[in-house]
């Protein structure tokens, strides 16, 4: 029992930690307003770590995990990105560059492609597995474009100082059409959670039968914010009903005529 309390305690801390820095000035409007099913704007322009201009919506042509962060952050953003790198290394069923891609998008208009390129090298290394560099972009942009994007995903943050923000911690999973499919909060992620979100984001265009089966067996519970599997309870009840009806069958139905053999 003590162990369960410990886990609950840890969870409570983790969920508190999901909303940026705890500075007295904030609290006002730092949150995620989930906009599931809505689309990101079609005209938001950003610059990637190589200095190339890209249109975000056009760029998203496969399921995409977006991590809104700022590059000079020394608190949760590095945790979020390393958590993300860690889990990407553990994904077996989905292949980066083919089934999905990743974007770290800075909401600090003072971040530059140069810093982005430096950060990218580090996090790609953290994945600990061969990874196509084009499948993870680090984007920066100006204030207007950032606001267009963050408003569209309901991501409310505020600048506290020169390089300091209060902001929510979350991943946003987008479909190839730019539709918002799933928010995954926190800084550590389960491979299964991410695989399921990517699979859902593929919107039916899934090749692997294993992933089709997963999609069939699990559903997302928005209250618990996790994927649930009820088969244990179901099979338990089915088994008891089965055994009960077998006993009933043995007791009730007419006996074979004795001596007929």
């Amino acid at each position: 029992m003590q162990r369960i309390y410990l886990i609950l305690f840890a969870l409570a801390i983790a969920s508190n930690g999901a909303s940026g820095h705890e500075s007295a000035a904030v609290k006002a409007d730092i949150e995620i307003v989930e906009k599931l099913g809505q689309n990101i704007p079609s005209d938001a322009m950003f610059t990637d770590e190589n200095g190339k201009k890209i249109n975000l919506k056009n760029f998203i042509d496969k399921p995409t995990i977006v991590a809104p962060i700022y590059l000079e952050c020394t608190h949760e953003c590095p945790l979020l990105l390393s958590g993300l790198a860690d889990v990407i290394g553990k994904l077996d069923l989905v292949k980066p560059g083919k089934d999905f891609q990743v974007i770290a998008l800075s909401f600090d208009n003072q971040d530059t492609p140069k810093i982005a390129a430096e950060k990218k090298v580090n996090y790609i290394k953290l994945i600990n597995k061969p990874f196509p560099p084009d499948a993870w972009k680090f984007l920066t942009g100006d204030e207007a474009n950032i606001k267009k994007f963050t408003d569209s995903i309901g991501f409310k943050f505020q600048r506290d100082a020169e390089h300091e923000f209060s902001h929510p911690i979350t991943l946003v999973v987008l479909a190839p059409s730019g539709k918002i499919i799933r928010y995954i909060e926190g800084t550590t992620f389960l491979p299964f959670e991410l695989t399921m979100a990517i699979t859902e984001a593929a919107q039916g265009r899934i090749g692997s039968p294993v992933r089709k089966a997963l999609l069939y067996c699990f559903s997302y519970d928005p209250q618990k914010k996790s994927y649930v599997f009820n088969i244990l309870q179901v099979t338990g009840i089915v088994m008891i009903l089965f055994v009960g009806s077998f006993l009933a069958y043995l007791l009730i139905s007419t006996k074979k005529k004795k001596g007929s053999f």
Partner: peptide, 13 residues
């Protein structure tokens, strides 16, 4: 083991 679904392994939830 085959699908990577975490029923029992804590690393998979």
């Amino acid at each position: 083991r085959f699908m990577g679904v975490g029923f029992f392994d804590p690393a998979k939830g």
